[in-house]
Structure formats: structure tokens, C-alpha cells
Design a protein around this nucleic acid. Structure first.
Lengths: 148, 148
DNA sequence: TTCGATGCAAAGATTTTGCATTTCC
DNA sequence: GGAAATGCAAAATCTTTGCATCGAA
């Protein structure tokens, strides 16, 4: 996980200018333990910047992704972003369908998997979806209506 | 896996009309052991139907998905469809980055995973990406350029 | 014959790009 | 001061919807 300062430092070291907007973006991701949609990010940022445009948000998300600060993931309901997990040991995630928060999973199925020698593995994906403590308690039977 | 006749029968039993276009779609999926993009499907269908429109392809894909014949999956480069795996025991897939073909993986990591009791599991995803025998042999060093 | 399926056109939604203006360093 | 970042507008994708016509049952 990165702190605001670390993210800002990475951007500055690449020659990027540190605008207010980018600082706010960095703070948002540093404070968020999960996935955010571009729309949610735009709406959050819009609170602080009246003339904010969607394309600037996208541009900054792309820049931060290229720097390796953020990672982009496709879900059934669209693209989401979160802080990149680099710097940590290899792991996977349990993801809350309600709020998007994530919990690390240290177990990796690739250690157990018997791969046919004909298949040349490049990468893998292992994700567990469900409801976190807060959301599971709050929603009860409504839980199954989540749509991440 | 379904045969063309099984797919057609499922559609007919739901009151859907069996048009030539739908028969061709059924045959395409019955013959394809992997994922197809809407665009690839449209282009394939276009060979047989000159006035084909994209919206009809989409409509039929949605219908077949609702009937449980197809399943839709989001990849980094967009939505893809394949025959639904129902009727088989629970399994996962190894997916070729080049051609989209899939191989079944009977191992399920959820059997090994120690889930925190606070987290209420709904579903999971385990996918292995790489190159199948044919594509791995063909592409060699170029392999890493795939983009599924 | 009748209602569902199709093609066409247009609308939505999401993401990207060109360009003038503003702002950081 | 000069280059990068932003906002605005418009374009490019991808997907869906309304409606008149066509066609399967």
C-alpha cells in the first residue's frame, strides 16, 4: 500500500507536475482499501473542483496506471481502479460485492495446480467475491442484490 | 457442452423462434471451444447474412445468455461469450491468450482456502492464462504480445 | 394470421482526442 | 517563460432502444 506522499513522490520523480487535482486523487486512493469506478472518482473529485471534466480524470487515471501506482481491473459492471499491490508478496483478494473493499488472500492456487506441460502459463487470476463484515451484517438477505 | 440441436431445442422450448440466424449462432458456439467477442461473432455471421446488423447479434447473444446457453465474461479487452459450462461438474479454465480456446481445470482453490468467518462468500473466479499447445508453438517469443 | 425477429436509425454510455487556455515549476 | 495540465467540445467505441417491416409457426 502507498501513502499520499509516496504516490506524489512517484509522480514527481517521473517529471509529472503535482497539481491540486492529482494530490486529491492520490489522497483518495491512499484512503481507499478497494476498487473505485471512474464515475465514482469523478463524482468525488467534483466536490472539490467545480469545473472538473471527465477527460482529465481519465487522463490522470491512465497516467497513474502507467506509473504503476494504480491497477485497472475489469468487472462485470465495468472498469475499476485501485492502488497497485506491488511491493507486497504475491497474493490475491477477497472483494466485497457491496462496497468494493478488499482483503488479501495469501494462498495461491498456482502452487497446487497441476498444469499440463503443453500449456505455457503467463498469468492467473483468483478472486473471491462476497460480503465483508460490515456489508454482510447490514444487508442481510438483500446481500444477493449486489452487482460488482 | 451443448450440441447445435440441444441449443436449438432450449430456445424452441422457451417459445423463441428458430431463425436461420439463430441456428447459425448455435452452430458457431457449438463448434467453438472458447471465447468469442461480439465483433468476431458479427463478422462471422456477416459472411452468411449480407444485411446483418450488430444490434440483432447483440439481442440474440443476450437472449441466449438469459436462457443459460451462453455465458458472458469480462476480459481486459472487453466482453466475450462462450457456451455455458452447466451440466458439468464445477471447474475452472485455462484460457489461451492467442486464440481464446479453453481447457478445463478440475482443481478448485476454494476447497483449500481458509476463509475468514467474517467474510460471506458468494462466488469466486479462478482463471489461468497462457498459450495452448498450438499457439505456444506457433508464436514463440511473440507469445507475450497477446492481449486477452 | 399473428406475434416475435430483424434491419435501420438514432440514442446512450463510456472513453479518447484536438486545441485553446491556464498553471505549475 | 516554457512545457505540461486542464476544460471544453467533439469524436470514437461499444451497446441498447424505438419502430416499421419481415417471417416463422
Amino acid at each position: 500500500m502507498h501513502t499520499v506522499d509516496e504516490i506524489v513522490e512517484i509522480m514527481a520523480s517521473q517529471g509529472l507536475r503535482i497539481t491540486d487535482q492529482r494530490k486529491t486523487l492520490a489522497r483518495l486512493f491512499a484512503d481507499t482499501a478497494g476498487y473505485l469506478t471512474p464515475k465514482a472518482i469523478y463524482e468525488y473529485m467534483g466536490k472539490s473542483y467545480s469545473g472538473l471534466s471527465f477527460d482529465t480524470v481519465y487522463r490522470n487515471l491512465r497516467v497513474m496506471e502507467e506509473l504503476g501506482v494504480l491497477e485497472q481491473v475489469m468487472f462485470e459492471d465495468g472498469v475499476k481502479f485501485k492502488l497497485h499491490c506491488k511491493g507486497h508478496d504475491h497474493h490475491h483478494h477477497m472483494i466485497c460485492l457491496q462496497c468494493g473493499h478488499t482483503l488479501p488472500v495469501t494462498f495461491c492456487p498456482m502452487n497446487e495446480l497441476d498444469v499440463p506441460e503443453k500449456f505455457q502459463v503467463v498469468k492467473h487470476k483468483f478472486e473471491v467475491f462476497g460480503y465483508c463484515e460490515q456489508c454482510g451484517a447490514q444487508t442481510g438477505d438483500e446481500a444477493s442484490k449486489g452487482k460488482l
